[in-house]
């Protein structure tokens, strides 16, 4: 029985205003486009979301080898255009592999928005690790940046 606590941060500077970035985190249709963007052989199942404080999300991702991972989140707190705080559990076919709490800070700055994603995770029994979690989150934040900048250009 092993609990491996880790903390990491992903920062992206985005050429879009904070209101646009905030909408991408809190509008379920918009969030599905970037959060569930299929890439690198991954595909996703139905995305169910209620992106208000007290709500949450469920979606299953499957990789090219047929391994599935289900993401369940619970939103603890939202401050308009500034901050979201949520927890999530990631489950493989064999059960939970990690539990995390995440904070998204949205800060207006010259030329756009800085998004600072901070995650504190506990990896359970070696089912996952920082080595895979960080690149995964970096990819997701890249998708957010692209989606926000596309919206701004449209």
């Amino acid at each position: 029985m092993e609990q491996d606590f880790q903390t990491f941060e992903v920062v992206r500077d985005i050429a879009a205003d904070p209101a646009t970035v905030f909408r991408l985190w809190t509008d379920a249709d918009l969030k599905e486009r970037w959060f569930c963007a299929d890439a690198n052989g991954w595909r996703h199942g139905p995305y169910r979301a209620d992106l208000r404080a007290g709500g949450g999300e469920t979606v299953t991702f499957t990789n090219g080898d047929g391994e599935s991972f289900t993401y369940h989140s619970h939103i603890f707190h939202i401050r308009d255009r500034a901050r979201l705080v949520y927890g999530y559990v990631m489950e493989s076919d064999e059960g939970p592999i990690s539990v995390s709490q995440a904070t998204v800070a949205i800060e207006g700055r010259s030329g756009g928005t800085r998004v600072r994603y901070t995650e504190q995770a506990v990896f359970l029994d070696g089912g996952d690790s920082l080595a895979t979690r960080v690149p995964g989150c970096e990819d997701v934040m890249n998708h957010l940046k692209a989606a926000a900048e596309d919206m701004e250009d449209a």
């Binding site: 029985m1 609990q3 606590f5 603890f76 707190h77 705080v85 927890g87 995390s100 709490q101």
Partner: peptide
């Protein structure tokens, strides 16, 4: 054997901290 939980501390309407 094991429990994992989060706690969110709220004062007024504002979350002041969370813990895992």
């Amino acid at each position: 054997h094991r429990a994992v939980f989060t706690e969110t501390v709220i004062v007024g309407d504002e979350a002041v901290a969370t813990s895992l």
